[in-house]
Amino acid sequence: MTASDIITALETKFGTKIKSKSLEAIDPFIVVDPSDLVEVVRHLRDEPTLAFDLLHNISGVDYLEPDPKKAAKAGFEPHLEVVYHLQSFQHRHRLVVKVLLPRWKNDQKGQLPEVPTLTSLYGSANWHEREVYDLVGVIFVGHPDLTRILLAEDWEGHPLRKDYEFPLEYHGIRGR
């Protein structure tokens, strides 16, 4: 199936739950709400004509221009995106599913935004979600073991946020 067929099939099934789509992007994608994510992805995996049984990648992208002078021209509102790259082993087609999130939950700094986990559907989601939590700072609700995977357990902050400040020292070793 081509990307337009897949997205049409999804739109007839889910209707307005597909918030937006883009066919002219290099990799066609759909955007869903966090609350609908598991339902849509479960359908993508279990429907035999779609059969997206490979979840290759989960990445978190922080859309923020840290310099306030350039922020007006940046071309985007500050937000976070969690991007899922799916592929079918049988049909070999690919699809990108995106979830848009606020940078902080309820706009209170320090409270991480939340997405439901996909660990019940894909084994590969487990470590990738831990990594996104570690580096970008997104909480995956329902994850069996949501701890830091790459950085030390007592690390502060999430380094791939654009406004992250590099540590000056860590356990007595100077950082810069």
């Binding site: 990445s59 992208v61 922080d62 021209k73 940046a74 071309g75």
Partner: peptide, 19 residues
């Protein structure tokens, strides 16, 4: 590799993700 270019055409990408 997942490369995101900034909408306002920067020399540096907005995000590079290595899967």
């Amino acid at each position: 590799f997942y490369v995101v270019g900034a909408p306002n055409k920067q020399a540096v990408p907005l995000r590079v993700r290595a899967k």
